[in-house]
Design a protein around this nucleic acid. Structure first.
Lengths: 153, 153
DNA sequence: CAATCATGGAGTTAATCAATCCACTTATCG
DNA sequence: CGATAAGTGGATTGATTAACTCCATGATTG
């Protein structure tokens, strides 16, 4: 795998959006300012996240993004995989089309990496936008139109 | 992190060498043939592994490499880190010089990645050349000059 | 001294990451 | 209607790195 900066930006953006009440629409500028992520790059990322079904986008003035699913449904794994494709700890695992790493079934490492891989995906898959504790970092999470946020978990 | 092919080759080579009795010297050619790793590339890798103190090298005819430490002392983590440097799951962790990812202490993700990181290093650090079950893949591991191998664990 | 090994350095190729620029469209508000 | 502020799309770039490859040199042993 290796969590790319792109995934990192995506996670930060999603966590940021999730910190607000559900119907709040966050613009690219707002997020890039808050998270100190390059504006144009972030635009691509948010676009991709909506293509992947994690965000809804709104055009025009007052446009922006909001979550397309509930916070519980959006795991860190789903965000990372939306950015980088399926996670793979190494080549041996990446092309798991039977012949894995070109060493067929006699690859001494394959089984080991599979287990390692599972450990990572399980871990990233177990954290969602509702279980992640963002309140600590986003005091505004309690603001908005009065509706407190993340009461769902 | 991301386990590079280089690390993968290094692991395979180390596992191969560890499968033999302790005083057996394995040449680059032998290992590259057995593990189907590009000869010249493997040469660099083995060189580096001996610079890192994991292998001893022997020049001249009948030269090659053997383990520089006991199998218990050589963990997968130490091999991977010899190849790629300290493992880091992402940028946020990589430059952990206080200011980590440029977001100082208010980085919402830092703590999370640190835990993730620890999980990975603990895991790779818990497997050594003596605990890894290579016998399954290397029937010759019982050959050699009669001394059976890996009785140490 | 010749064969067989490791060593060292330079160079290559391809891919990928992390952007950046800019022209275009869309929606709202006054 | 028309200015404004938003997202969209495409092209392009610069830096870095991964994964080699070539080859000339030097050591060791029989």
């Amino acid at each position: 795998m290796q969590i790319s900066r792109k995934s990192d930006y995506a996670l930060r953006a999603m966590v940021y959006i999730a910190a607000w009440e559900e119907d709040k629409i966050c613009s690219i500028n707002e997020i890039s300012d808050a998270e100190k992520v390059p504006r144009e790059y972030l635009a691509k990322i948010l676009k991709e996240l909506s293509l992947q079904g994690l965000l809804h986008s709104y055009k025009g003035i007052n446009g922006g993004y909001r979550l397309a699913k509930s916070r519980e449904e959006i795991t860190f794994l789903s965000i990372v995989e939306a950015m980088q494709g399926k996670i793979a700890v190494n080549d041996c695992i990446r092309h798991s089309d039977g012949d894995s790493c070109g060493r067929k079934s006699d690859c001494a490492m394959h089984e080991f990496w599979l287990a390692e891989q599972k450990r990572v995906t399980d871990s990233l898959g177990s954290v969602s936008l509702s279980s992640f504790n963002y309140k600590k970092f986003y005091p505004f999470a309690q603001r908005g139109n009065g509706k407190p946020v993340a009461e769902t978990n």
